[in-house]
């Protein structure tokens, strides 16, 4: 179990992560979602013990993770800087990783470099943005670290390379189950791989849920304004729009079959809300309101 207890990250007077408490059972693939500036990278830096929280603690299997060699050996955090000497060649980065990580698989790393068409004799500084991300993917996956954290490790990668990344991630996870935390903005293309989703907003934990529970969690109710108003009263409204006499309201609610039947007989139609739409509704700046007539 990985436990975050009251984790707060500050930069001067700016609070980037605000009192986050989270239990992450090991051996699962997590998706960390949040808007730009929501605190994703700061939270992951604390989770990986790259940064000591101002308050709170991260525990891995009961042990305080910070400055803990036993935990750090098993933690791999890939961020966009790659944390390397830019004048080093890709081949050297792979060698360093092999020295530091007991779980490193050099053959797999070579296979992945080949898959992403990266010349190991090239210097890190000469790689394109997408190639740097791909090297991050190689370092992250071939480390086979029991806690692997990939922070937006797809930036600049084209659609073909991203598809290869997702395929390798899943296949290697199936062969070597471990805890993988992946932050992303590309929700729709990768959500099927997540067992659980964590959403943070303005530094605070907004939601931690099984991904499948989020599918079909919201509903959009459309129809004559008065009938919609009557039907949705009392439920949490995530968004709404009107055109003429027609009103469409998105609710954080999963109606039962008889609710739907009752609504349909009143002339309403029901539409599902996908994970990306749910995320947009949950994290858009407008205050959420109790439905009114």
């Amino acid at each position: 179990m990985i436990e975050l207890r009251g984790v707060t990250v500050r930069y001067g007077r700016t609070v980037a992560v605000d009192d986050v408490t989270l239990d992450l059972p090991t051996g699962k693939i997590y998706g960390l979602l949040g808007r730009n500036g929501s605190g994703k990278t700061s939270l992951l830096s604390a989770l990986a013990s790259f940064r000591r929280p101002a308050f709170g603690v991260v525990r891995v299997d009961g042990a305080d993770a910070f400055e803990n060699p036993a935990v750090m050996r098993n933690t791999c955090f890939i961020r966009d800087t790659l944390d390397c000497n830019e004048s080093d060649k890709v081949r050297q980065l792979m060698c360093f990783a092999g020295w530091m990580r007991p779980t490193w698989d050099a053959d797999y790393a070579a296979k992945l470099l080949d898959l992403f068409e990266i010349n190991p004799r090239k210097r890190a500084s000469s790689l394109s943005r997408g190639q740097k991300s791909a090297v991050g993917v190689v370092l992250g996956l071939a480390s086979r670290a029991p806690l692997t954290i990939l922070d937006e490790t797809y930036l600049g990668m084209d659609a073909v390379a991203r598809a290869a990344f997702y395929r390798e991630l899943l296949e290697d996870y199936l062969a070597h189950p471990r805890t993988i935390v992946l932050s992303t903005h590309l929700i729709e293309e990768v959500a099927d791989l997540f067992e659980r989703v964590v959403i943070i907003d303005r530094g605070r934990l907004l939601l931690h849920e099984e991904t499948d529970e989020l599918r079909g969690r919201g509903v959009t109710v459309t129809g004559p304004a008065a009938a919609v108003g009557e039907f949705v009263a009392g439920h949490t409204v995530l968004g709404e729009q009107s055109l003429g006499g027609v009103r469409a309201v998105t609710l954080d609610w999963h109606p039962a079959a008889d609710d739907v039947a009752r609504g349909e007989s009143a002339g309403l139609t029901f539409g599902p809300v996908g994970i990306q739409d749910l995320f947009i509704h949950l994290t858009s700046r407008a205050e959420r309101l109790e439905a009114t007539r």
Binding site: Y166, L170, L174, L193, E195, T211, D212
Partner: peptide, 17 residues
């Protein structure tokens, strides 16, 4: 479950469910 997850590119826990 694992064959199914790999084939359809989904999380194995979802397939298991």
């Amino acid at each position: 479950t694992n064959q199914y997850a790999a084939f359809y590119r989904i999380n194995p826990a979802t397939a298991a469910k």
